[in-house]
Structure formats: C-alpha cells, structure tokens
Design a protein around this nucleic acid. Structure first.
Length: 631
RNA sequence: GCGCCCGUAGCUCAGCAGGAUAGAGCAUCGGAUUCCUAAUCCGGGGGUCGCAGGUUCGAAUCCUGCCGGGCGCACCA
C-alpha cells in the first residue's frame, strides 16, 4: 500500500490516510475559538491603512481615475492587474508600480507616456517624496520618512492584530491534516504534514477565514483487521498459547503488546480458542482506541488541537456513503461497468469484473473509479467521498487536505468527487508534503517500518523540542523534500534558522530589560507616545519598512497556502535586526539605548517593540513559542 | 506506457498571484568584540534558472515538446 511503502523505504512522508476503527461520528475538543475569533471593532483598522502597499495601490488607482476624468487617459480601464510592490533593487525606490505597463495596450498609448502622466499625479501626493519613471514603464516611488514612521505607529496601535486581514471574508475553510492511520503512534513523516496543516490553519484564520481543523480517522478498512490480528497474536503469546512467529503483514509494534496485556487483565482468557469472527471486531475497536490515544498524545506534544475528529467507520455506519452515492446517481454519475486492465505493468490476478463506478472522467480524471469492491465492501474512495461531501454539508466551501506525496495519484479523483457532489460549489485543494530525510550529524538515519526502526515523532520532539521541530518543518515548501538533522536542529548557531529568529526576539527582550533598568517606560502606551521623528538612520527606516511588509506576507502566504513563507520572512526580519544591532557595536550612536538621549532611545524602543511583535506574531502562526532569553 | 510533483551558485534551498542587474544559508577567502547577548555582523569570489520552442512591452515564473529525478497507476488505505 502506498502510504506504508514510502515509510518502509526509509522515508516518512506517509501521512498515511488509511484504515482504522473509532466509533462516534465527531468529537469536539473543548477549546476557545481564540484563533479564529472575529474582532468587529477591528474591522475599520483592517482597511488599507494597515497595509501601506495597498494604500498606495489605491492612490495609484485614484490618480488614474483623475487622469481619466481630465481626458488624459481613456475612461473605464481595467486596473485589476496593477500592482504596487517593493522593487528587488533598492535603487529603484521603495515602491514600484507596473500600472503604465499594464494599461498601455488598453489605453493605446506608449507605456512611458502613461508612466509620465501617472508620475506627475503621484508626485503631488502628500505621501510621496519622489515619483520617477523608468523604462520600460515603471513608476518608482520614494515615500517621505514620515509615512514609514506613521506606519510604525499603526503597528504599535494594532499590536498582535497587526497583519490580520479580511482576505478570507469569513469563508468557511476546512483543513484536514494528520489523519494518520490508527495503527500506531505518529512518526516523523506524519509530523511534517501535521505541522504544515496546523500552521496553514493558523495562517488562514489570521487572514480572515473561518477555519475548522479536522482529523479523519481511517478506521473502516481491512487495515484494522490486520491491527486486530496483530493484537490477538500478542494476546495468545501473553497467555502462553504459542502462536509462532508474527505472520507477514501484521504489525510488530511493541505498543500492541500493551494493548493485548490490557485485554488480558480486563477480560481474561475468554477469547482464546474462539473463531476469528468472535473477536476480530472487538480487538479492532480496542486497537483503534488505544492507537488513537497514542496519536492524541503525540498531537498534544506537538501542540496541535483539532476541532473535529471524524470516524470513517461511523460515517459508514450512519449510511453516509449511500447518501453520497444517491446524490451522484441523481446526476447520472454512477453506473455498473468494467474497467480496462491497468496499463503499463501487468497485474497477475487481474480479471474483468463489473463494478459500481463513479464517472470521474466527467470531471477530469483519467478513468472512472470503483465505489464497491468485488467482495461487496465499500472502497476507501467511496467512504472518503462521503466524508468530503459531509464536510461540504457542514458548511465548508473550501476543503484543504494535507497528504503525503505518496497520495498524489489520489488527488484527481477526490477533486472530481468534490466537484461532482457539490456541483462545484466547493473546491478541494490538496497539499502534498514531500518526504522528510532524517540525519544525525550528516549521516542519514535509516528507517524501516517493518524492522520497527521508524523514528517516532515523540522521540524526536523529546530530543529537539516542539518549537524546533515545528519551525524546521516550515523551512521548506511543502512539495520540496526536507532534510532534518537532529544534531543541527538544536545547534545554537546562525545556520540554524530557529535560533537565528529566536535569538533576535531574545535580544530585543534583553534590550527591554536593560531599558527598564535605565528607567524607561516600556508599556505599550508609552511606546506609542514616542517621538518617532527621532528615527533617522537609514538602517532603522529599512527595518521599519520590512515591518511594513508583514501584512503583504500574510496575504501572499495565505493565498498561496504556503505557511513556510512566514518562516522565510521572519528570517529576513531577524537578519535586518541583527545587522542593525551589530552596527551599534561599531558606532555607539547607533546603539538602541543611549544614556544621554532618552527621546531617541524611546523611539528606538518603539521600533524594537514593533519588530518583536511581528516576530512573536509570525512565530505564533507557526505554532512556535517566542523565547525571551537564550543561554 | 500514463498521470502528478520537482529540476535555480560546489551543497541545501528562496524567488513575493510575469516585472527591472536572479537572492539567502552552508562551504571557501578576508575583516569586526573595552560597550544593549560575537549564539551576531561586514565584505570578496561563485549562475547557459535542465534543454528547445511559444505567448508577452517583459518569462526562473504561463503554454507545448524533449531530457533527468521523485511519487503513484483496478476490486488497499
């Protein structure tokens, strides 16, 4: 089976979405909805003023409207593709707009002509210090320092809400992640998908979506029978009824011995000598309950709390599959047919069998997909389809699933099913997480599920800590393989991004401790009252500009469903801060704390408070606790 | 054979819903510490963005075809 095979090969990305055995349909955690809370009083502040780039984009559009009004440009131009961005090259100013390039064709004018007109308008704005055109038609802007300083004040006023946006417009998004098979504790590969899903959920909540975090318990299939037999095998061993070596295909997991022991203690030897039908279901349920308990412990260690756990088995028993299929039937998307043999490599025991099929080809899939097995049982796909339909019926219009890359071949059919079942009113987006390669001092750690050497997530977390693990899992794009060196991860050096960022936060905290000793008031109100005109050094304003980019980063990361962008941004921000710090070592006037200039010190503290706030904010999205000291 | 993902500096990777002279870390070479944490910083060298076409004012980014790597390919999950 795909999920297992990848793990056996030494890898781990297997987010195993396979079999299992719980019972109740949904279980809700009691927990405050703090992460997704709405703040109506904040709505006004969520406008353009928080995001300077959006503000300036508005100014550009207004300027174009004025030009159109005066007849210098045609009316009714499509301005949707216009952007205002920080240019790559600082020599091109602080913001650049492509407006003239985008409009040239529609306006039937040369880009530079439009750029000239636009630059003239923009130069007259109070925010703008200079507006210059550059070939082939950019307008490069430099804003007055005051604009950036004012932005800093906004940051301080908004506090931990700085960067929060209404991009999602309260749309209900379901993020399903982890969903590991209830056949054992989580391993390192599960950890990646779990962290990515959890951080993405945090990110989307921060970006204004209404997020449900969900775990699908695959407790409905044959895998649970294997689990039950594995436990029964141990049960016989414990009772001295020698079953011989563990048969192929059963789980060698040591935790299963403990499950068997509990059954012996609580239920005695009554299952001994009984036919399989007598104990299979019971042992399966006990096994799933025990394994889910382990998994929940692991999630707790990772600091992950799902809102909803959905049991595949419960869905099946509640008749949800029949409901989903009926919905498809009503649209003529279900039929009995025979699939062609798999192409490419021959399958020995293949024989043409008529099956109940879903017309996935009508929605872009390569072949129609079976819903029922030849033994009469529902396929995994049928249950998963019903599950996704259920998520939609609970009100979610965007469904995000985080899977291991080994499930890539499954994406198309699931997308097809969601499109069919929801009549395209909901969309499925699947994030595939690539493999995690574990290293120990540069040497690869060999892992094999069969040999029982799969590295348990709990062991890794115990060794490197939750925060380090979570951060490291977000230092790569989800679809890129990730190397994780247990040794380097806890190294306190520059090439460890976790410590690089944490150190920046800790250093700022350190400055504040000294500031308090010097008698500075560092409460939020005092900092907000600082005279920010005292921030004059180009390096300081550069840092402020980076802070001003935070809202863009949130929006871009949320749109792209890429929480790793938060990690990269924080690394940049930390770098800019560290650089400024060191300049203070060379030039005493650039130190943050100046004994003879309390006003300037106060302004610098305000700047640092903003930087610290954004770091804490970003780490919060990643699920990482900022540290105040590193020693 | 088919589908999906990937291919960027010696190594590991970013590259912001197409934007200007492609960036960071590691490695390498050279510098900075009486002073807020040197667990840091500053600088040098290093590139046919896999290859070839196409769309566009503009392509690492979008499209097509090759080459190379990963994952998957009835009635498993």
């Amino acid at each position: 089976m795909p999920a297992r095979r990848l793990a056996e090969d030494g890898g781990a990305a297997g987010l195993g979405r396979d079999g299992g055995g719980g019972a109740r349909l949904y279980r809700r955690h009691d927990r405050p909805l703090c992460r997704a809370r709405t703040r109506t009083h904040l709505q006004h502040a969520l406008g353009p003023s928080m995001n300077l780039y959006e503000t300036m984009l508005e100014r550009v559009r207004e300027a174009l409207a004025r030009l159109a009004e005066r007849g210098e440009l045609p009316a009714g131009l499509d301005t949707s593709r216009i952007t205002v961005e920080p240019p790559r090259d600082p020599a091109h100013g602080q913001m650049a707009t492509n407006a003239a390039l985008v409009l040239a064709r529609q306006a039937r004018r040369r880009p530079l002509e439009i750029a000239e007109l636009l630059a003239g308008e923009l130069a007259a704005l109070p925010e703008v210090a200079s507006a210059r055109t550059a070939p082939p038609g950019f307008v490069n802007l430099v804003l007055h320092d005051d604009v950036w300083r004012r932005q800093l004040r906004t940051v301080l006023e908004l506090g931990h809400d700085y960067g929060r946006t209404d991009l999602g417009r309260r749309e209900r998004v379901n993020v399903e992640y982890c969903s590991a098979n209830p056949t054992g504790p989580l391993h390192v590969g599960h950890g990646r998908g779990t962290v990515v899903g959890d951080a993405l959920a945090n990110l989307l909540a921060f970006a204004g979506y209404q997020v449900t975090r969900e775990y699908y318990i695959n407790d409905g299939g044959g895998q649970i029978e294997a689990l039950a037999r594995s436990i029964y095998h141990r049960y016989r061993e414990l009772l001295g009824d020698d079953p011989g070596p563990l048969p192929e295909g059963l789980y060698p997991l040591e935790e299963l011995v403990a499950v068997a022991r509990t059954i012996v203690e609580e239920e005695g030897a009554r299952w001994l000598g009984q036919p399989e039908e007598a104990w299979l279901d019971h042992f399966g349920r006990r096994g799933v309950a025990a394994m889910m308990a382990l998994i929940r412990e692991d999630l707790e260690r990772l600091g992950v709390r799902h809102d909803v756990f959905t049991s595949e088995r419960a869905l099946i028993e509640a008749g949800r599959i029949e409901e989903a299929i009926a919905a498809l039937e009503a649209r003529g998307l279900v039929y009995v047919g025979t699939l062609p043999p798999p192409k490419g490599r021959p399958v020995e025991d293949w024989e043409p069998t008529p099956q109940l099929l879903f017309r996935a080809t009508a929605f872009g899939d390569d072949v129609d997909r079976p819903l029922r097995r030849s033994n009469g049982a529902w396929t995994y796909f049928a249950a998963d389809m019903a599950y996704h339909f259920d998520k939609f019926r609970r009100g979610h219009t965007t469904l995000i699933d985080v899977w291991g890359a080994d499930h890539g071949g499954y994406v198309r059919r699931m997308e097809a099913a969601v499109a069919a079942l929801t009549e395209e009113r909901a969309r499925l987006e699947v994030l595939l997480c690539q493999i995690v390669h574990l290293y120990e001092r540069g040497e690869p750690v060999r892992m094999s599920k069969r040999a029982g050497t799969l590295v348990r997530l709990r062991d890794v977390i115990e060794r490197v800590g939750r925060d380090v693990f979570r951060f490291m899992m977000l230092t790569r794009k989800n679809d890129a393989p990730l190397d994780f060196d247990l040794e380097k991860a806890v190294e306190q050096s520059r090439d460890n991004p976790v410590f690089y960022v944490q150190y920046a936060h800790a250093r700022i905290c350190s400055v504040f401790r000294h500031a308090v000793e010097m008698g500075h008031a560092v409460d939020p109100d005092s900092l907000r009252a600082a005279d920010l005109d005292r921030l004059e050094d180009p390096g300081e304003l550069e840092l402020v500009r980076l802070v001003a980019e935070w809202p863009r980063v949130v929006v871009a990361a949320a749109r792209a469903r890429e929480p790793h962008r938060i990690a990269f941004y924080l690394h940049d921000l930390a770098g800019s801060f560290h650089s400024l710090w060191t300049r203070g070592k060379e030039d005493a006037t650039l130190r943050f704390l100046l004994a003879d200039d309390p006003a300037r010190t106060q302004a610098r503290l305000a700047m640092l408070a903003a930087v610290r706030g954004v770091i804490a904010n970003g780490l919060g999205i990643m699920g990482v606790e900022p540290v105040e000291e590193l020693h």
